[in-house]
Lab assay of single mutants.
Amino acid sequence: SDPSEDRAPESARVGNIPSSTSALKVPQLKVAESAQGPAAAHTTDTAGYNAMEESVSREKPELTASTERVNKRMSMVVSGLTPEEFMLVYKFARKHHITLTNLITEETTHVVMKTDAEFVCERTLKYFLGIAGGKWVVSYFWVTQSIKERKMLNEHDFEVRGDVVNGRNHQGPKRARESQDRKIFRGLEICCYGPFTNMPTDQLEWMVQLCGASVVKELSSFTLGTGVHPIVVVQPDAWTEDNGFHAIGQMCEAPVVTREWVLDSVALYQCQELDTYLIPQIPHSHY
């Protein structure tokens, strides 16, 4: 159930021909089969995070001529859309010479989310990475209204306002976009420790780096000194050995919190207090 199309920051360009055919990675995205229709094609874990990302398996898109002007500035990904909605975005992107990729990268400028009429969405990996990267996180209605009015409308009017977990109007995407000089995790050293489900560890690490944190791979690698705040992030329900995560405190002095601390902080683009996310640790033995 991992969102495989989000696994690594590679891009698939639509609308320009790469210098070599080997560089072309066409979105071959799968549809989750469901008797209840597209709305039930998501699996949500206890964290309220949509693990099964969206989309559609299609034939290789038709490439435009390399001489045609390509908008190098805009690059989009989509999240939560049905196959039909994805194809509408594809046509919109081609019309406006926008790069459409299946994986979010540093070059991505827009994340197009499936939302309700009030621009509230589910939480997906692309949603988190879009906010963390200060990108435009907009409703699919931006595409449909632009098509209806036959011009590209202003993104401000379609920015995602909230999500089904953290609140319907928290304005996290807007706050992140306007606060890239004040990253929420700066001054923190974060170790993403142990197993994680539904989200590859490297993507979680990239997320906290985008928010200004330094990533530490091992508990023994924390910088011990003033001005640096170490934090260990774990996902308790992913551990097979009972309560192993309670013993992390015996290996390092850092506070240990659940992954929800990261996800909530990123969604709201406000660093949350650790208290409600802390995992009790077995104290050091004193002999």
Rank of each mutant, 00 (worst) to 15 (best):
S1F: 08
S1I: 06
P3R: 15
S4I: 08
S4F: 11
D6I: 04
R7Y: 04
R7C: 06
P9S: 07
P9I: 06
E10T: 08
S11H: 05
A12L: 11
R13L: 10
G15A: 07
N16K: 10
I17A: 08
I17E: 14
S19E: 07
S19V: 13
S20T: 11
T21R: 12
T21W: 04
T21Q: 09
S22C: 08
S22N: 09
A23P: 14
L24T: 11
K25I: 08
V26C: 03
P27I: 03
L29V: 12
K30V: 13
E33T: 08
S34Y: 04
A35T: 12
A35P: 09
A35S: 07
P38L: 04
A41T: 07
A41E: 04
H42Q: 14
H42Y: 06
T43H: 09
T44L: 07
D45P: 10
T46Y: 06
M52Y: 14
M52L: 11
M52C: 13
E53R: 09
E54F: 14
R58K: 09
R58S: 12
E62N: 01
L63V: 13
A65H: 13
S66T: 06
E68I: 06
K72H: 13
K72Y: 06
M74G: 06
M74R: 04
S75L: 06
G80P: 02
L81T: 02
T82Y: 04
T82I: 13
P83F: 07
P83R: 05
M87N: 10
Y90D: 07
K91L: 04
K91R: 02
F92P: 01
I98F: 08
T101F: 04
T101I: 03
N102K: 07
L103D: 05
I104R: 00
E106S: 06
E107V: 01
T109I: 00
V111F: 01
V112P: 01
V112A: 02
M113P: 00
K114V: 03
K114I: 05
T115G: 00
D116E: 02
D116S: 02
A117H: 14
E118D: 03
F119C: 03
F119G: 12
V120C: 04
V120H: 04
C121K: 00
Y127A: 00
Y127S: 00
G130D: 00
G130H: 00
G133N: 09
G134P: 01
W136V: 05
W136S: 14
V137S: 00
V138W: 00
V138S: 01
S139I: 00
S139P: 01
S139Q: 00
W142F: 03
V143L: 04
Q145E: 05
Q145L: 05
Q145V: 07
Q145S: 12
I147Q: 09
I147W: 11
K148Y: 03
K148R: 15
K151L: 11
M152S: 03
N154A: 08
E155H: 15
D157V: 11
F158G: 00
F158V: 00
E159T: 09
R161Y: 06
R161K: 14
G162F: 00
D163G: 01
V165Q: 03
N166G: 07
N166S: 04
N166R: 09
N166T: 08
G167F: 01
G167R: 01
G167H: 03
R168A: 07
H170C: 02
H170V: 06
Q171L: 07
P173I: 02
R175S: 11
A176N: 02
E178S: 02
E178F: 06
S179A: 07
Q180N: 14
R182A: 03
I184E: 00
R186P: 15
G187A: 14
G187Y: 10
G187F: 13
L188Y: 03
L188R: 06
L188G: 01
E189I: 13
E189S: 03
I190V: 14
I190M: 12
C191P: 00
C192T: 06
Y193P: 09
P195V: 14
P195G: 04
T197P: 15
T197S: 15
N198H: 13
M199P: 05
W206R: 08
M207N: 03
V208R: 02
L210E: 14
C211T: 15
L219M: 04
L219T: 15
T223S: 13
T223R: 15
G227N: 10
H229V: 04
P230K: 14
P230A: 10
V232K: 04
V234E: 01
A238V: 11
T240Q: 10
E241M: 15
E241L: 04
E241V: 05
E241R: 14
N243R: 15
H246W: 11
H246R: 13
Q250P: 15
E253R: 02
P255D: 14
P255C: 08
P255Q: 04
V256E: 00
V256G: 00
V257L: 12
V257F: 01
T258G: 10
T258N: 02
V262P: 04
L263S: 01
D264R: 07
S265P: 02
V266F: 00
A267S: 15
Y269Q: 13
Q270P: 01
C271A: 15
Q272E: 15
E273L: 14
Y277T: 00
Y277R: 02
I279A: 10
I279L: 06
P280S: 11
P280R: 08
Q281F: 03
I282L: 11
I282R: 11
I282N: 05
P283M: 10
S285M: 14
H286L: 11
H286G: 12
Y287Q: 09
